[in-house]
């Protein structure tokens, strides 16, 4: 039986605080190249996994590159799924490279490890920033969230990236970690967690990285199913709502970012993509847009937005 969930609607809490969620200048294009992944993480809002057929094809990749060239984003952030597994991903990255000063690839480390040294070398040569999932310094928490054996493989891949210069001071090769909680609780303070991860990874495994980001899990997809099945949904939603911090609204990523899905449809963010809430309320293809929406355009809101406004926020 599903739990009774009663939190104040997110739109209502914004009104109560006299806030509106509108776009600033859109500086980042996030490109979700598909749900295909070699892992089936229990917190995944997109329910990505092995065998998922949704991947971006070459024609849509071409449209995305043209859009990036027209709009000139400060950063282009390629995500998934596991983008490393999408056919033509290196061609996409190479085509995007001239159009943005900051090109990011979100990696789950085990998929990256499968691709081998030639692939890693291409990323390095393209100067791609690698942002990778690394939930915890605990093997048990990591494997519980991402699957048995992921911890060991992730450490091995981090070492290899360090050998290539990624995460090593002075190389200019940025390696960032992302930590999502392994359960129905909020993440720790980002600064404190970064200190802890840096100390433990260096001392125990000799691993270096550039930055750590801590993000709350968004109650969508596979994670929401787990919350429901485990009887944690109502408590987690209440926790997110209680942790609403009005000071986060001005810096939310959806104010400066545009997300394009594997089929070319645009969204305010990757979570709205998962929830099926397209930009402006109707599906628009990336090829239809000359540039990003102007500053002042309203951003769609939904109750999962509480995950980005809890505590110090998701910026």
């Amino acid at each position: 039986m599903s739990e009774a969930v009663t939190v104040e609607p997110f739109a209502s809490v914004l009104r109560r605080h006299g806030l509106e969620l509108t776009r600033g200048e859109t500086t980042t294009l996030q490109v979700n190249v598909g749900r295909l992944c070699n892992q089936a993480c229990r917190h995944c809002h997109l329910e990505a996994g092995p065998g998922r057929p949704e991947v971006m094809g070459p024609e849509t990749m071409d449209r995305v590159v043209r859009f990036a060239a027209r709009a000139g984003f400060s950063a282009v952030d390629v995500t998934g799924g596991a983008p490393e597994l999408v056919p033509g991903i290196l061609d996409l990255l190479a085509a995007l490279r001239p159009h943005t000063p900051r090109l990011i690839l979100r990696s789950n480390l085990t998929a990256l490890r499968e691709r081998g040294p030639e692939f890693w070398g291409r990323l390095r040569d393209l100067g791609v920033v690698i942002v990778t999932s690394f939930p915890s310094v605990s093997r048990a928490q990591t494997d519980a969230q991402r699957g048995a054996g992921v911890w060991e493989q992730s450490l091995d891949m981090l070492r290899r990236l360090n050998e290539l210069g990624y995460g090593v001071e002075g190389t200019g090769l940025e390696l960032d970690l992302v930590s999502n909680p392994a359960g129905a609780f909020l993440p720790p303070d980002q600064c404190r967690a970064e200190e802890r991860f840096r100390r433990d990874l260096a001392r125990r495994w000799g691993i270096a990285f550039s930055h750590l980001y801590t993000f709350a899990n968004v109650p969508l997809g596979r994670y929401r199913c787990w919350l429901e099945e485990s009887g944690n949904l109502a408590g987690y939603l209440e926790k997110l709502a209680q942790a609403f911090n009005p000071a986060t609204v001005g810096g939310l990523m959806c104010r400066t970012q545009l997300s394009v899905a594997w089929d070319g449809v645009l969204y305010d963010c990757d979570f709205h993509l998962a929830a099926g809430l397209p930009l402006g309320g109707r599906p628009r293809h990336v090829s239809e847009c000359e540039g990003p929406p102007p500053a002042g355009t309203p951003v769609a809101v939904a109750d999962h937005c509480y995950a980005c406004t809890a505590g110090s926020g998701f910026t």
Partner: peptide, 12 residues
């Protein structure tokens, strides 16, 4: 238990 997890403590 909840506070420890939210402050970044591990189960170990």
């Amino acid at each position: 238990t909840r506070a420890s997890l939210e402050k970044g403590a591990t189960p170990g």
